[in-house]
Design a protein around this nucleic acid. Sequence first.
DNA 1: CGGCTGTTTGATGAGTGTCAACGAATGTGG
DNA 2: CCACATTCGTTGACACTCATCAAACAGCCG
Lengths: 243, 243
Amino acid sequence: MSKLQRNIQNYKNIVNTKTKCQKCSVNTLCLPSGLSSSELLDLDKVIAPSKIVDKNKPLFSYGEKFDSLYVVHSGMFKSTTVNEEGKERIISFHLPGEVMGLDGIHSDFYESTVTALTMSSYCKIPYKQLMDLSIEHPVIQQNLLKVMSKEIYSCKKNHIDIGSTAKLALFIKTLSYRFEIRGYSGKEFFLPISQRDIANYLGMAEETLSRVFKKLQKSEMVKYKKHILTILKKEELENIAES
Amino acid sequence: MSKLQRNIQNYKNIVNTKTKCQKCSVNTLCLPSGLSSSELLDLDKVIAPSKIVDKNKPLFSYGEKFDSLYVVHSGMFKSTTVNEEGKERIISFHLPGEVMGLDGIHSDFYESTVTALTMSSYCKIPYKQLMDLSIEHPVIQQNLLKVMSKEIYSCKKNHIDIGSTAKLALFIKTLSYRFEIRGYSGKEFFLPISQRDIANYLGMAEETLSRVFKKLQKSEMVKYKKHILTILKKEELENIAES
DNA sequence: CGGCTGTTTGATGAGTGTCAACGAATGTGG
DNA sequence: CCACATTCGTTGACACTCATCAAACAGCCG
């Protein structure tokens, strides 16, 4: 099976939702990263087996009481806030192995709403139990700290003052990298996100995104059809991303 | 002594640098928040007494080995990265009680350079020792998690697609809030940041910032003279910030 | 006083948001 | 399976914001 096929199957949710952390395909990128087998066993005790959620269904919503972290098992999610005028603003997309709900830790309430972009599955980790467990196994909490540190880093590093073309190129480049470290192809992947959502996330008009996307395709940097994105000229794309 | 005067004295560093956490004026906003006295005593053992650093001197630099977190004791710092063309990009300003160096946790190297904007003082917290201590006192690590969660939240929440005027208004509003919860006046405060740095941080041209700033002053929303910023119409300023 | 750095002002053009309209794709119910 | 409705993406014309360039000005320190 090709890496692209595996990627697409990921979104069609042909995954075993009974998988424990030990056998999970993303356990090296997830909270369990670097844990010994006995630690993994303990972690499994507090993590519910992964559950399936339908497209457009929320995992949790802004303002709800915070009690658990969530990890993407398969599929893709988006997290959003609502601005003063009631408009949705997308603040991140989540790939398998990525932790969601981190912004709820400090205030005891979820600060964002997380929704499935396609049929997906997730693991739920009760926060209190995770804290209790991490007293026994400090490495678990240190992993959490690392995950959060990385989140801070990547968020702060995001350029805000770059042109639309560079924004899109950077977005694609970052996605490509994230797919690659998950064992999927970084050159060709399935993207269950609407252009409207991408535009929203990148902070530009839908029309601008459409034009910019077309430009990248005309110059044969990328191909995009039926939600399958193919990177044709990686080098040049990366050059565009950095300006 | 007025709140503004206290604020200015903060920058002139008329502070006791021998202060232990128990007596520190920002201990409720800093890592020690919510600790019992015995926990505070233990924390003090690993935190070096605060040290003074001169204007424009770096605390640590991008790429150096990560070994400690730093907390602002008085004054103000900026953290920066360098983009591909070698240009400095400011990613945050740090007020007393705020933790610096968090982005180094995940990679073992500092991911940014932190520099004093004015004569300032800081506390150094060796990370390994903090981790050891937090096995004994889990509440310490939970505070750290909260600090990081808040950081993620405020970073993600930052609007990126708003106009220059709104950006500046939001920047001022946020600063005002941060001063206020520190016990200084939120309506009038000393701002040891050059307009160039503000423009850099907000991702706009120096000239644009100058014009926008002037506009806010002409409409008598704020006053800005000799680095003292006065908010005249809080309500209206906040309205501008949200668009 | 002169030399720096930081800030202001004006003129100009490129890049993007907005509006309006259309076309393509997808979903729905008979 | 087809007709229809709805969402999603595309295209063009236009206005406006903002970055850029150039130059002058203000404040500060030796």
